[in-house]
């Protein structure tokens, strides 16, 4: 299905890199590396240069930490979105937020995509997407409160739960007026899930792609990779790329990443193996 992400459209065979740009002092992976606005701005230029089609700007760390209220989140992201919009008209601007107030403010500044990483916690987010013609990521968190950590979460069938929740939220968004071509679903590895749940989601991702909704996966350096390989943050790239390959084989369309270039290579390689992408330039044995 053709993807329409705000002012940008992509053909139905395109895979997209969504580069993470944190405007936070405390995110787990970069530990505030782009907390200063100029550093975050430089990071946008860097990932765009590396070929990212989407930047995902976040003002609140997903994990537990100091309270960030609406006003503080807006201070972190709204003016920054305006600056990125002006400097990079060709990039899709996504904002990672669960709050409708923040979503409305960034859409006013030209955001194309709302990454509702907390699974419709604020049901008005879809209404904001509809009213601004923005795209929406519908995620499965199992009903978690934003920024809470999972504790003894259990599902009869985590994949079935993720499929049902994301498809229901996608249909609700469409009913509210979001363009059907502007909805992504994300099973949300680690969010409201144990490592075993995230491994099963990866193993059975094809059940989510089979719904026909374009699938976003956010795997990069996550704890389920770290726990599986017993490696700390900073040593999870290989594990991240391994699960990326499996998700690419299952047909995921959008990859939320810290490392654009290696992820793009893995996805391109897998898509060429599966016959969805021609080689860049193949002449071996064909002259």
């Amino acid at each position: 299905m053709t993807l329409r992400l705000g002012r940008h459209t992509f053909p139905d065979d395109a895979t997209l890199m969504m580069a993470i740009v944190n405007r936070t002092p405390d995110s787990f992976y970069d530990r505030g590396a782009t907390w200063a606005e100029d550093r975050a701005f430089d990071r946008v230029a860097e990932v765009v240069d590396e070929g990212a089609e989407i930047v995902d700007i976040g003002g609140v760390k997903a994990g537990q930490g100091p309270v960030v209220d609406v006003e503080e989140e807006q201070r972190r992201v709204v003016a920054f979105v305006r600056r990125v919009r002006a400097a990079h008209p060709g990039v899709v601007i996504s904002v990672d937020t669960w709050r409708a107030e923040v979503a409305r403010a960034v859409c006013e500044e030209g955001a194309d995509l709302l990454n509702d990483a907390w699974g419709g916690y604020d049901p008005r987010l879809a209404e904001v997407a509809a009213s601004y013609g923005a795209a929406l990521v519908c995620t499965h968190t199992g009903g978690m409160t934003p920024r809470s950590a999972p504790h003894r979460v259990a599902y009869d069938d985590v994949v079935d739960a993720a499929v049902r929740a994301t498809v229901a939220e996608a249909e609700r968004a469409v009913a509210l007026g979001v363009d059907r071509a502007s909805v992504l679903v994300d099973p949300a590895h680690d969010f409201g899930k144990t490592t075993f749940h995230s491994l099963e989601l990866t193993r059975r991702l094809c059940e989510l792609t089979a719904t026909g909704w374009p699938v976003l996966v956010s795997l990069s350096n996550k704890d389920f990779v770290g726990e599986t390989l017993d490696v700390p943050v900073g040593e999870r790239l290989v594990g991240t790329l391994a699960v990326t390959a499996l998700c690419a084989q299952a047909g995921a369309r959008v990859y939320r990443v810290h490392d654009v270039v290696p992820t793009r290579q893995v996805v391109d390689m897998v898509r060429s193996v599966t016959g969805h992408r021609p080689p860049a330039r193949a002449v071996r044995g064909l002259a």
Binding site: R277, P278, P279, A280, R281, A282, V283, L286, A287
Partner: peptide
């Protein structure tokens, strides 16, 4: 040359 065959197309 089989480079001219459509099944051998590159980007």
């Amino acid at each position: 040359t089989p480079l001219l065959l459509p099944e051998h197309g590159s980007l």
